[in-house]
Design a protein around this nucleic acid. Structure first.
Lengths: 246, 246
DNA sequence: GCCTCCAAGTTGTACGACAACTTCGCTATG
DNA sequence: CATAGCGAAGTTGTCGTACAACTTGGAGGC
């Protein structure tokens, strides 16, 4: 296991902190690369690689011959571009995240889930159903599906407050990326009851398929968010540069 | 104006093409960096910078001491992570995109729009309202707001089928990124009428703020999508690495 | 058969040099 | 005095080489 993350990532992480802390204000120019590399005690190559990461994130902008400037970054509440899970989503809004009505067991896999996990429809899979709360208010009803030979119901039950992502990372199956399908919806019988809202309440539903770096699907989940629970945002990179519509 | 895009971006673009074309199959290992650099006629530094871009996109994965491998990338219908506009969204599904009920003029800016454009609420702004069709079916009702001193109503009317993004790019104000807020909704009076659907029909609404590279907001838009019109997906990078929740 | 170790190959980092570009002050010119 | 042009200094972009860190596979010994 690599365990130690690469130098450029730790440099980038440090710079991110400085930007977030306001040490580097928006619009401000960073020290020149040779100088900054010297003060950080790294080579200019590694520093450039780190800055490239920030640039890709839209945190800074590089101008040839002029300098590197901190971008006026918009305030984003909950960026879907990164994968954090509901808990940190709630925590990031200053609310206390909790879990109620947790239930875990073997269930026959729905068609879409089975397809993603490369199983036959109806085959038993580990399913974790729970209601997430923010300051004791029920805001999200979620279901996580996982192959039983990857995460048994017992093991999934044991993780308690730990994220499913952490459990998978411990198994050397870290989630590298996921694809979420977003759709509006109205609370039906089960969801309305779990979330304790009237039927027909507006929902934002995320159907998500998570994969490891080598492309194996390890987790499928469905999250029903109350419409007014949080603001969900997405960072969209502009057209141009490397963009191919598939 | 830079006009010419940097070397590493053109290298990355070429590699993206090769991946998309299947020349480089998922799971396959790329040639080693020195060798690939030689065949492409560029230095290893530039090639590495280009590969870093692909890695950030999740297209490839680098393993220290082993090699660089093409990721098994999931098939995505409409990736919100990139900014294409409704037209190409429709076109990418094999449908014919059209526009009806187009109206453009000066309107008082709503509060949220005025705030984003750094104006006083109620100040007149250029507004473009239109209904987008897919194979003659009304699927999206959209409104675009822009400062009148940036894009006059006349000019915005003239662009016809051209994208608003193109018009802004011509003005040397290319959209670098945007932040979209996603929410579910039900069709009210105006939207229901425009889209020719019953009131209360399910919608997916995107409120989006587009900015230039230096962070100036140049465009605000609202898109009301019919719930069953298309599947909207988001590519979410996994937890870990450089991630700070703000 | 199994384990150890080594060698070859690959990516990560470092350092130095120069090219391409921007910025700004200085100067010559009207 | 105003202005256009020049040029030096500073910054990012690219190049080349060398070495470190790591993985992989096979040879060799037990």
């Amino acid at each position: 296991m690599p365990s130690r993350l690469s130098l450029r990532h730790s440099i980038a992480s440090g710079l991110r902190r400085r930007v977030a802390a306001g040490d580097l204000a928006p619009g401000e120019r960073l020290p020149s690369e040779p100088q900054l590399a010297k003060t950080l005690g790294v080579s200019r190559s590694s520093l450039r690689a780190a800055i490239a990461l920030l640039e890709e994130d839209g945190l800074v902008q590089r101008l040839h011959g002029s300098g590197t400037y901190v971008t006026h970054r918009p305030v984003m509440r909950n960026d879907l571009s990164r994968n954090f899970g509901v808990s940190s989503m709630i925590a990031s809004m200053g609310l206390e995240a909790g879990t109620v009505d947790e239930h875990c067991g073997l269930e026959p896999a729905p068609a879409l889930v089975a397809e993603a996990l490369e199983l036959e429809a109806g085959e038993p899979v580990t399913a974790l159903r729970r209601v997430r709360t923010a300051d004791d208010r029920r805001v999200v009803y979620s279901v996580d599906w996982c192959r039983r030979d990857v995460l048994s119901p017992e093991r999934m039950r044991d993780l308690g407050d730990g994220s499913v992502y952490d459990a998978l990372a411990d198994l050397d199956l870290p989630v590298h990326h996921g694809v979420a399908t977003i759709s509006p919806g109205m609370a039906g019988g089960e969801v309305a009851e779990r979330l304790d809202v009237p039927r027909g309440s507006l929902l934002l539903t995320l159907f998500q398929v998570d994969s490891t770096a080598d492309g194996h699907v390890v987790l499928v989940s469905e999250e029903h968010h109350l419409a007014d629970a949080f603001e969900v945002t997405v960072y969209r990179r502009g057209p141009g540069e490397g963009s191919e519509q598939v």
